[in-house]
């Protein structure tokens, strides 16, 4: 069976590798992927959105619907994981967990390092999120770094220690709140008489030009994406590390 799979896949791979010779050359500036839509993005994005980082402008403005539903997909993943794994009855859903005595003196270096690294990580995550217009970064990256700081805390101390500081109830509120912030910005634009996620509608509220309003709109939805991604990372870790009962972790 394994041999048969190997033969079939090798045949498929051979066909695809031969077909690869018809694909454009490596780093060819005139390749089809780089010659139709993308020059337009590079040349017009700054004038339209005042965002030097073209990736951010395309992500949150031109492809705003796509990013919004990606955020919803990530949010749904966190919900599904919780539904599948949850074992505790509903009533102790947000109860404060009893504090288990910490192991003392065995991992001083680990905890000291965590205390040093985690605040720096969180500030860096906010920088990556806020500076996404001008440098590589944005909501997804900043959110993942921020979520990783909580996971590092849970790994270096223990899961209960982290849950007592960042309750699951608040984590889930953040999950939903970020997606809601994104959709809310879109709905606000709709209420101002523009298209859904047409950030130029915010020019009147913010008192800036339309291109600058699009820049601010991108920042608002990136914050929404960052909050959702951060909370989803933490939620997935809580559920997977404890097998759904939120008591003992790794």
């Amino acid at each position: 069976m394994k041999r048969l799979t190997l033969i079939i896949l090798a045949a498929c791979a051979l066909i695809m590798l031969l077909a690869a010779s018809d694909l454009p050359d490596w780093a060819d500036p005139a390749s089809p992927a780089s010659s139709h839509l993308s020059p337009g993005f590079v040349e017009q994005a700054y004038e339209a959105t005042h965002t030097p980082n073209v990736v951010t402008a395309v992500l949150a403005d031109y492809r705003g619907y796509d990013t919004m539903f990606e955020t919803v997909v990530v949010f749904l993943a966190a919900l599904i994981i919780m539904i599948i794994l949850r074992r505790t009855p509903h009533r102790r859903f947000c109860k404060i967990l009893p504090h288990r005595p910490q192991r003392q003196g065995r991992d001083t270096v680990l905890k000291g390092a965590a205390q040093l690294i985690i605040p720096v990580m969180q500030v860096f995550a906010l920088y990556v999120l806020g500076h996404g217009h001008y440098s590589p970064g944005g909501g997804f990256q900043g959110g993942v770094i921020f979520g990783a700081s909580f996971i590092l805390l849970a790994l270096c101390y223990n899961l209960e220690f982290t849950i007592n500081r960042f309750r699951e109830r608040i984590v889930l509120l953040c999950c939903a709140g970020g997606a809601l912030l994104y959709a809310g910005v879109g709905a606000l634009c709709l209420a101002m008489g523009w298209n859904f996620l047409g950030y130029a509608a915010l020019a009147g509220i913010l008192g800036v030009s339309e291109a600058m309003a699009r820049s601010h709109g991108i920042l608002l939805v990136e914050v929404g994406v960052g909050i959702t991604v951060m909370a989803v990372m933490v939620s997935i870790y809580y559920d997977l590390a404890s097998g759904g009962d939120m008591r003992e972790g790794l």
């Binding site: 990736v55 992500l59 796509d66 990013t67 990606e70 997909v73 990530v74 749904l76 993943a77 966190a78 944005g138 997804f140 993942v144 991604v229 989803v232 990372m233 997935i236």
Partner: peptide
Amino acid sequence: LTAIVVGVG
């Protein structure tokens, strides 16, 4: 960028 995050999900 979006595919990576959905991949994590």
